[in-house]
Design a protein around this nucleic acid. Structure first.
Lengths: 136, 136
DNA sequence: ATAATCTATAACACCTAGTATTACAGTACG
DNA sequence: CGTACTGTAATACTAGGTGTTATAGATTAT
């Protein structure tokens, strides 16, 4: 899976620790160890879906917009990584019964797999992650 | 996920349809739509773990070595894609409590996720896949 | 023996997706 | 205004996945 998921969780957790003031993309990017532009791209997605608010200009930045315990990892997975589980299927030979149908069969199986993954990831909220951060 | 998983399943399913004779990597690669060398690389892995047998020389090729119903998708996932679920974690800032612990927290959560995925994928054997191929 | 057909691998080239970087426009505040 | 931010497009870089070529070794038929 690409790292957008990680960066989104990282950002939300960071913001969860600063509930009263705006955090800049620079500060978050320093914590996460990636370029600020990338963080802003991820944050932009989170904002579009209402998880955070942002403010431009001096003193601006990002801030959490929901209750920590009502945002779970499946919400974020869907935003950043939906479909990532699907194994890549090269275009195979339509003349062969295996080639002609393999893609469909695996696709359907992995639709189910992702639903299953969803049930698991829904267990973990940002609040839980924050607790795990401190719970060594 | 990379396509090794797909290619392995594709190859096994192909071999399952030819239980009485050897199939060449050329034939399988034509069905799967990728280069024969890549198929051989995947088949080499399957052979090393005892799922198939191979024979060199004229009339040689590959053949299934187990019962169709005792090889499941989780077996193959473990061979080809274990760890693929883990989201990438950039090296983050150790000075920050979030940066210092995020990787560990997510790693542990996704260990659980992969176990969960395992339980799901174990449901499907090559025999099942073969039936699904014909079952439109 | 020798030729033909296959596996087994290493080595190299290519291509794509992920990532970093630069650049610049827009907004808010003092 | 100038400064400090977000927002986003465009470009460059990089690594991993993939395709291709090359070569050695095994087996069989003639």
């Amino acid at each position: 899976m690409n790292s957008d998921f990680t960066l989104a969780i990282h950002s939300l957790t960071y913001l969860a620790l600063q509930p009263d003031r705006m955090s800049t993309s620079d500060a978050i990017s320093e914590s996460a160890g990636v370029h600020a532009v990338r963080i802003r791209k991820v944050l932009s997605l989170l904002k579009k879906h209402g998880f955070i608010k942002s403010k431009e200009g001096l003193g601006g930045g990002f801030i959490f917009a929901r209750d920590l315990s009502e945002v779970n990892l499946w919400d974020i997975y869907k935003l950043t990584s939906e479909g990532a589980l699907q194994p890549k299927c090269p275009e195979s030979n339509e003349q062969c019964v295996v080639g002609a149908n393999m893609q469909r069969v695996l696709f359907n199986i992995f639709i189910g797999a992702e639903e299953h993954l969803g049930d698991y990831l829904k267990q973990y909220t940002i609040k839980d992650v924050l607790e795990l951060i401190y719970d060594k």
